[in-house]
């Protein structure tokens, strides 16, 4: 028996919005420590890794490890039927071929359940090695989304250059070029508005704007985003999900041939 309950459907709606741009379908691996999902996008350029810890749910029970392959478009149709303040419960029997989403209104007067067929997905799991990154940037998630959106008008690629003074985002193309520099915050009044840089050595890397823009669909989940970079290895874009886990995106850099 698997059962996981969240007191507000908003979190699950936001999590789904954060991944469905990149993934059509994905396997939710459930065990007694929580729910994990790892999947590459169709073109195998980026990797999505989601962790929802058991202790972050209002109720969590998973008697046997369970892998639930879901069509995220179908899941989105179901989640659309939930009000933000509904309680949402996911339920499945052991070895089930369906999962049930149950929504309960706050006053308990409306209860809906939606049963969705599960899929057998043949997904490759990748081992991500522990890495000491040359630069780690923490910045407001809204600011990062704005920069990706603005600069993607000027080119397909975004260059991120990080030094201890700050981080510079650049794009260029037919129109011309655009640069946005963010200085490291000197005095932190509001932590969520700070730009913090931990630098071992400076890094300049180039990434496809299209994927960065997809990652920023996770912005409603949290105030701050963390970018971890080292030369010629994938960028990690991490959004923490308060009290329950995180979604991480790994993006392969563009490299000169």
């Amino acid at each position: 028996m698997f059962e996981a309950r969240l007191s507000s459907a908003t979190t699950l709606k936001k999590v789904l919005d954060a991944i469905k741009d990149l993934l059509n379908e994905a396997t939710f691996d459930c065990n007694d420590s929580g729910i994990q999902l790892q999947a590459m996008d169709n073109s195998h350029v980026s990797l999505v890794s989601l962790t929802l810890r058991a202790d972050g749910f209002d109720k969590y029970r998973c008697d046997r490890n369970l892998s639930m392959g879901m069509n995220l478009g179908s899941m989105a149709k179901i989640m659309k039927c939930a009000n933000n303040d509904d309680t949402v419960t996911m339920k499945a029997q052991d070895n089930a071929d369906t999962v049930v989403f149950m929504f309960e209104s706050q006053n308990q007067e409306k209860v809906s359940d939606y049963e969705m067929k599960l899929m057998n997905l043949d997904q490759e799991h990748l081992g991500i090695p522990e890495t000491d990154y040359a630069c780690i940037v923490r910045m407001p998630a809204m600011e990062f989304a704005r920069i990706c959106r603005d600069l993607s008008q000027f080119g397909e690629s975004l260059v991120i250059c990080c030094t201890k003074e700050g981080v510079k985002f650049s794009a260029s193309g037919d129109v011309g070029s655009a640069n946005i520099k963010l200085a490291q915050t000197t005095s932190v009044d509001k932590e969520e508005e700070a730009v913090i840089i931990e630098m071992q050595e400076p890094v300049t890397l180039t990434f496809a704007c299209r994927y960065l823009n997809s990652f920023t669909k996770a912005t409603p989940l949290t105030n701050q985003v963390q970018l971890s970079m080292s030369m010629d290895v994938p960028l990690v874009v991490e959004y923490r999900i308060q009290d329950i886990g995180h979604v991480r995106y790994y993006l392969a850099p563009k490299i000169e041939d």
Binding site: M40, H44, V45, S46, L47, E124, H125, L126, G127, I128, P129, S157, T206, A208, V233, P234, Y250, L251, A252, P253, K254, I255, E256, D257
Partner: peptide
């Protein structure tokens, strides 16, 4: 033009 790498080339298949 820089070439786009495949994410799989950086991580090991489990």
């Amino acid at each position: 033009e820089n070439s786009q790498k495949n994410i799989r080339t950086f991580f090991l298949s489990k």
